[in-house]
């Protein structure tokens, strides 16, 4: 068994989510190789006990690097492994299936459990159903739902590092123009310990900002939104929690004015403690909450903000 974990660096930094992917990879009970795309400080990750070798593509910019350029050369590297894992984030979802297409291999998406080297658990139908799947492939390509695996942090003797340059062939059919990262100064939703999410009952963007953002600030929490709230223009798309948005699993999830549509539940049901505030006592969200308060959010949230000040 030979295991490879692929990670992307953005803004010269390696995302923490690679530690969750390593957490998944170590379920295979063998040391792993790690391939890092983009410039980043890798001293910390190189000290982890589970890593044998790091292959570092340091001459490319992680955030500007297109899958169309990477996939061909990575496919050649992937061929010498039995398992290849990457985070089911926007970069991983873009890259790994392209490699799969080149190698004519199947892929198992959004893995939430590793039962054995060839058996995996994954959600379907917006998380309403969990499937156990057996892969017949010699090379298993897996994207990992990072919220389902604990971060790997054990340090050891240190990995060997192989700096690779000139591997990626850039061709003019695809070109990077710009990137617009909205919330670089606030807390990252996908990794936040506390998430405050607002629904359409907030009624306007002003209310959303006044109540949800202020409360989140007080709690040191990330801001989330239901699909309805995003569609109503109260919050940007990348705040959306749900099947079609982000999947989060914080220790504390505050659902404010959220009805609890199936597609929203799919994005937050693995949260540890869920607290819901809704005026409608029959709102579905209460069925997925540990604590519920039936109250008008326009009364409750200002009081809550005051109490936390």
């Amino acid at each position: 068994m030979r295991v490879l974990v692929i990670g992307h660096a953005t803004a010269n930094q390696l995302s923490d989510s690679i530690l969750n992917v390593l957490g998944a990879a170590t379920k295979l009970n063998t040391k792993v190789d790690v391939l890092i795309i983009g410039k980043a400080d890798i001293t910390e990750i190189a000290s982890l006990a589970c890593i044998a070798k790091i292959i570092h593509l340091s001459d490319v910019s992680g955030e500007q690097m297109q899958s169309a350029f990477l996939a061909k050369s990575l496919a050649q590297i992937v061929k010498s492994y039995t398992h290849v894992l990457t985070a089911a984030d926007s970069a991983g979802k873009d890259l790994l299936p392209r490699i799969a297409g080149i190698l004519e291999l199947s892929q198992i998406s959004e893995v939430i459990g590793i039962i054995s080297p060839n058996m995996f658990k994954r959600p379907m139908y917006a998380g309403n159903v969990v499937a156990e799947v057996e892969s017949f492939e010699d090379i298993k390509l897996l994207t990992i739902r990072t919220t389902s695996f604990a971060k790997y942090t054990e340090t050891g003797s240190g990995a060997s590092i192989e700096e690779k340059s000139g591997l990626v062939e850039i061709n003019p059919t695809t070109s990077f123009i710009s990137q617009d990262i909205i919330h670089s100064d606030t807390i990252d939703l996908a990794h936040a310990k506390i998430v405050v999410t607002g629904g359409r009952s907030l009624g306007s963007k002003e209310n959303f900002d006044d109540l949800i953002h202020t409360l989140a600030l007080k709690l040191g929490a990330a801001v989330g939104a239901s699909r309805a709230a995003v569609e109503a223009g109260y919050a940007p798309n990348d705040c959306q929690v749900g099947q079609t948005g982000k999947v989060v699993a914080p220790t504390l999830y505050l659902a404010i004015g959220i009805s609890g549509a199936v597609q929203h539940i799919a994005g937050m049901k693995d949260s540890k403690t869920v607290v819901a505030i809704n005026l409608d006592p029959n709102a579905q969200i209460f069925e997925y909450s540990d604590y519920g308060l039936v109250a008008d959010l326009f009364d409750t949230i200002p009081q809550l903000i005051n109490a936390l000040s």
Binding site: D89, T174, S175, I177, Q179, I181, H183, S184
Partner: peptide
């Protein structure tokens, strides 16, 4: 749509 925001690219 990417994590944290958006990216604009040109494809032939």
């Amino acid at each position: 749509e990417i994590d944290g925001g958006t990216e604009t690219i040109k494809v032939n």
